[in-house]
């Protein structure tokens, strides 16, 4: 059962990733990207970590895909994309990807991952939270600082003094 689910999820994830690259329509491409991200959430569910899966759905499908979709809808496609049909580059790219995947796959297969057997139960998300607040607190603080810095930078960039809002009276 798990194998069938795994296969179906893999097909969905990889297929929609290829579709996201190859689709001519940007909207359909971003929908396919959502399929990829949702498939990864499915992998997390298979790996007994629903907490991560739900965050994957909420953050990647719910927010980042929406941002991509929104941007795509507001952009005129002809202005930023020129249609370049270059068969040679495409085949070289595919070959490069295959080489890379085979190399990575062989490394992972040789690393002894196939012989790992574990009977430990799935990690509770409460333990993850406790670890974040105790052992990994510097990483948490660092992430918070980076996020704050990026938000502040975005606000500074977006700020404009020359625009007067006439309608606003409050």
């Amino acid at each position: 059962m798990a194998d069938a689910t795994f296969l179906a999820l893999s097909v969905i994830t990889i297929g929609s990733a290829i579709a996201a690259l190859e689709m001519r329509s940007l909207i359909y491409g971003s929908i396919a990207l959502m399929g990829t991200l949702g498939g990864i959430a499915g992998f997390f569910l298979l790996l007994d970590s629903p907490f991560v899966a739900m965050f994957q759905l909420a953050v990647y499908v719910g927010s980042i895909a929406v941002l991509i979709l929104f941007t795509v809808m507001l952009v005129k496609r002809e202005l930023i994309f020129k249609k370049i049909e270059d068969k040679r580059r495409k085949f070289v790219g595919i070959a490069l990807m295959l080489v890379f995947m085979i190399a990575l796959g062989s490394i992972i297969m040789d690393s002894g991952i196939k012989s790992i057997t574990t009977t430990e139960p799935a990690v509770d998300f409460r333990n993850i939270g406790a670890d974040f607040l105790t052992y990994y607190w510097p990483a948490l603080i660092l992430m918070a600082l980076i996020l704050t810095g990026s938000v502040t930078g975005a606000l500074v960039l977006a700020r404009r003094e020359d625009v007067e809002d006439e309608q606003r009276t409050d």
């Binding site: 959502m34 629903p50 965050f55 759905l57 499908v61 719910g62 929406v66 809808m73």
Partner: peptide
């Protein structure tokens, strides 16, 4: 993780709308 699932599902509505 019911509440998180609620958050994840709420995130789908704007996508469908747009």
């Amino acid at each position: 993780v019911g509440l998180l699932a609620v958050f994840a599902i709420i995130g789908f509505f704007p996508i469908i709308t747009i």
